[in-house]
Design a protein around this nucleic acid. Structure first.
Lengths: 156, 156
DNA sequence: TAGAGATAGTTGACGATTGAACTAAACAGC
DNA sequence: GCTGTTTAGTTCAATCGTCAACTATCTCTA
């Protein structure tokens, strides 16, 4: 956002789309989070961390890699990983190649939590978002928020 | 989500779109909230309440109308309106037609806060979302999340 | 090879959101 | 017109996220 930016207001269609987006995402995240908590006892943020760790070679990632991958603050990652560690889903260990670094390592128990949670979560993502959109519309969603994410990438 | 739902996993394109959406919205909301706080001293949630009140006839709405319009919990609306009241942006008064009800009424000061905040906020919404999407793609976003919002409407 | 600055991560205090329990008023059926 | 049930809103405690301060390590340059 800089001083040369002078665009104003949204037209009424744009405003309707923007408000649909606000309302839809608010309800969607609330529902996904609640469903995960009720069925598997983990939050959406915790779930996403487990997913990233499960995909990583050796099932471990640096804290900063988790932070940038999820677009969460470092502090938030510290707190969330601490909760996951208390729940036995993750272990922390020093990073061998960088004395400042910390690796979060998925445990077998963490993998079981993920395997337990994933089907219901994916069903929910499908049922409330993916499958209510046409393939072309869902692609458009990916394009739009990919562009937004790039624009707001960490160095911006 | 019901028992007959058996769809599984997302294909790799769908997963890429879903993650772009997660990352894009996370960054977008974080940025919009921070920009509003820095430039105008209000949160995004507070801003949205001021907008709804400013559009309402008589510049007032019931608490429950705010809650369903923003898809926020009643408890959250109570807290947020309390903060706005402390900031002098809103006044609460008993609802004349329903003894249980409470009206949130926008003050002149609240209207000034909104007028001050709105241009920068709209520029940000444009700059980080609306204008990075083609018109057709942004329409698709509206369609998709409109459908999600309907599906997850309060009685679901 | 100092020393300055940048980077990684944690901590603690504070603010915001949630969910459950609660009060009070409205409504429905008899 | 009671009585039981819904609905509106608030309150409290607990959880989660943010921000600023802090330690430790790494990197760059002279």
């Amino acid at each position: 956002m800089n001083d040369t930016m002078t665009a104003r207001w949204l037209d009424s269609d744009q405003q309707a789309h923007w408000r649909a987006f606000l309302s839809g995402t608010t309800r969607l995240f609330e529902r996904l989070d609640r469903q995960l908590r009720e069925r598997s006892g983990i939050s959406l943020a915790e779930y996403e961390i487990l997913v990233r760790l499960s995909e990583a070679p050796g099932q471990h990632l640096r804290m900063a890699e988790l932070a940038s991958s999820l677009a969460h603050s470092r502090s938030r990652i510290t707190h969330t990983v601490a909760r996951l560690e208390a729940a036995g889903a993750v272990i922390r260990q020093a990073c061998p190649s960088d004395g400042r670094g910390v690796l979060a390592l998925l445990t077998d128990g963490g993998m079981r939590m993920l395997v337990d949670a994933a089907p219901g979560h994916v069903d929910a993502v499908r049922g409330y978002l993916v499958d209510v959109a046409s393939p072309a519309d869902f692609e458009a969603v990916g394009r739009v928020f990919g562009a937004t994410a790039d624009l707001l990438a960490d160095d911006s």
